[in-house]
Amino acid sequence: MTNRFSRRDMLRFASVGAAAATVASPAILRAQGSYPDRPINVVVPFDTGGYNDRLARAFAPMLQAELGQPLNIINRGGAGALLGHTYFLQQPDDGYTICASSFGPYVPLNILTQDADFSIDDFHMINLPSQDYTLMATEAGSDLESIDDVLARLHDDPSSVSIGIQPASADLVNLTILMEAEGIDPDALALVTYDGGGPTRNAAAGGVVDVALVGGEGFLPLADEIRPLLTFSDTRRDGWEGALITDVLGADAPFVSGSQRGWAVHSSFVEQHPDRYQILLDAIETASKNPDNIASLEEQQLATTWFGPEASNEQLRQTAALMEQYLDLLTDD
């Protein structure tokens, strides 16, 4: 089985030819028999072109330089990352399959709303460099000048502002927390549901909906077309103007972070192959901290911060706990 995969991979790389030849460094020949001695598969549970895919593809050559083996990206999109996460866990936990995904909020969502047959303990986060946040925005020319305008209108009539949002999302949890704190009935809101961050942002930028709540990083290319109103974070992010959630609800305002994206392995891999795990961990850490890599990723608007396994796992568990607290809201009918 193992043998067969490796030969197939080599075949593919041989035939894609130039592509592989240029990325596979001569270091491939070094260290026969020690991990890793063959290409590593990276499962991305989203289709090509999204943030995770771009991050994985941009980071792969950097990690490759550290590990001395080519990384082979496998896109396995669908069902809100459920298919990809399931597929990843089904692969052997030998360190030759790793996963690049938005683990938060998708792993908790898979478990809470889609009856996934895995648990959060099956994943071990190595690093989650990209920490997205919910941004409430309106179109650039809107008459809603600030979050106060929005709240004033909602207090007047909760259905008077159409709100673009993805169902079962971290953004919906954040919106509900805010509405409950403001004493506005969340059930009375005029929610307009979209199936994807891109369409939600386009709806905000085009004035199709009055406001939208969606991951803020993806708004960057549309910065000229929108007006940011409220950032669900305790620090200013990506230079967005407008209020912070802590300005509105106080310093201890509850909120969940948006997509937490990065790299993970099977938890069982950590236990069974501590030596290999250490090699992989060191490689990712070194690649993440390399100044050249940081500069290159930043230019592509991709995150690079090194938080490490401890902080990353902790962050994911926090999100999962908050999501569970608001479970009724995510599965509500």
Partner: peptide, 27 residues
Amino acid sequence: ALGIPGGGATAILLAAFAINNIVGGPS
């Protein structure tokens, strides 16, 4: 003009833009 991928193919083109540090969009 907007830096928005309408589908998979344009998403790949945007990725190629990103590789060269060029961002599609109004500017």
